[in-house]
Nucleic acid binder design. Structure first.
Length: 296
DNA sequence: TGGCACTAGCCATGGCTAGC
DNA sequence: GCTAGCCATGGCTAGTGCCA
């Protein structure tokens, strides 16, 4: 089944998005679809369904919104069509309406009112912002009412400041960063997850970016060990490094594309050295963090 | 078992912040 | 819209862990 699926995806990708995928990738999909189908499905799926959804990655909130049967899982739908030929059509089973939705008190996320204290704290202010505040209080005359004009003047004055003169604004900004982190950690702890959902639903409706918990406010956790490929990416073998240097300057996007290709062509022996190192590190990590949640 | 997030590397880009 | 600085994000790769 996976084999058929892989071929199906490969063909669709080749037809609809041809130039985006290298011939090597597509050919491997065709020749070894069971191996590559899983990895590449997650890559190709957004491309295949992009007409239906504007979001690149399905946000957790969207999962509950897909109860209307909007799921697009190629593998499952494929198996369902074959099953449908064997069994007579069943009556669609009505899903029970959630109690919260049934209730009169239910307010859709798009209409939920977000109070001032439920909004995320304002971001950290840059030194320039503190300069602007002082500039407006002390040096803006009534004749300079046009914001564009005085902002332009502020920009000129800011550039003329020496490093020592800028220092107090930088200190104020650093202090504001501390304030921001305190507020953010406190906010993340107390805010109702439903409010966060509503904020992002409403931001999306306005075409704004979704709000995310800043990494600094997230509880710190240890990084997972690197996979074999990530180790290869970080420390390619000398011959690959030489090859890259021979190609001259290139963007990191290009570099990684080349390294992906190199990885596929790597000898089994060299590849094994990365795999073994990754395996060793992973086992150490598991020993440190417990193996209750690990598999294989 | 599918789908998604995460992991490294760097850099261009864009959003956010203040005030009117 | 206008300013400067700061910071997050996207882009790109493959392998792995985890959740549903």
């Amino acid at each position: 089944m996976l084999r058929l699926l892989g071929q199906h995806v490969a063909l669709r990708v080749n037809v609809t998005k041809g130039p985006l995928f290298t011939g090597a990738v597509v050919s491997q999909l065709v020749t070894r679809p069971s191996t590559y189908a899983r990895t590449f499905l997650s890559v190709t799926r957004p491309l295949l369904v992009e007409k239906d959804t504007a979001t690149k990655r399905k946000a957790p909130a969207a999962k509950s919104d897909t109860a209307t049967g909007d799921k697009k899982t190629p593998a499952k739908s494929a198996s369902k069509t074959t099953a449908a030929t064997k069994e007579p059509a069943k009556k669609p089973v009505k899903k029970p309406v959630k109690a919260a939705v049934k209730s009169k008190a239910y307010v859709p996320l798009t209409r939920m009112k977000i109070s001032r204290e439920d909004r995320p704290p304002t971001g950290r202010r840059s030194p320039f912002v503190f300069f602007i505040q002082e500039f407006l209080k002390t040096r803006v005359s009534k004749s300079l009412k046009d914001s564009a004009e005085y902002m332009s003047q502020a920009g000129q004055e800011w550039r003329a400041l020496s490093e020592s003169e800028k220092q107090k604004y930088q200190d104020a900004s650093a202090e504001d960063t501390k304030r921001y982190l305190r507020d953010m950690i406190e906010y993340v702890e107390r805010v109702d997850p439903q409010v966060l959902k509503a904020i992002n639903v409403q931001r999306k409706a306005k075409g704004q970016q979704r709000w995310k918990v800043p990494p600094e406010a997230k509880p710190k956790r240890e990084k997972r060990p690197l996979s074999s490929f990530m180790r290869f990416l970080r420390d390619p073998p000398p011959e690959v490094v030489a090859k890259l240097e021979g190609l001259g300057d290139m963007t990191w996007l290009k570099r990684n594309s080349i390294l992906g290709e190199e990885w596929r062509q790597l000898s089994a022996e060299t590849k094994a050295s990365y795999t073994e190192a990754a395996k060793k590190e992973r086992e150490e990590w598991r020993a440190q963090h417990g193996s209750a949640t690990t598999s294989a």
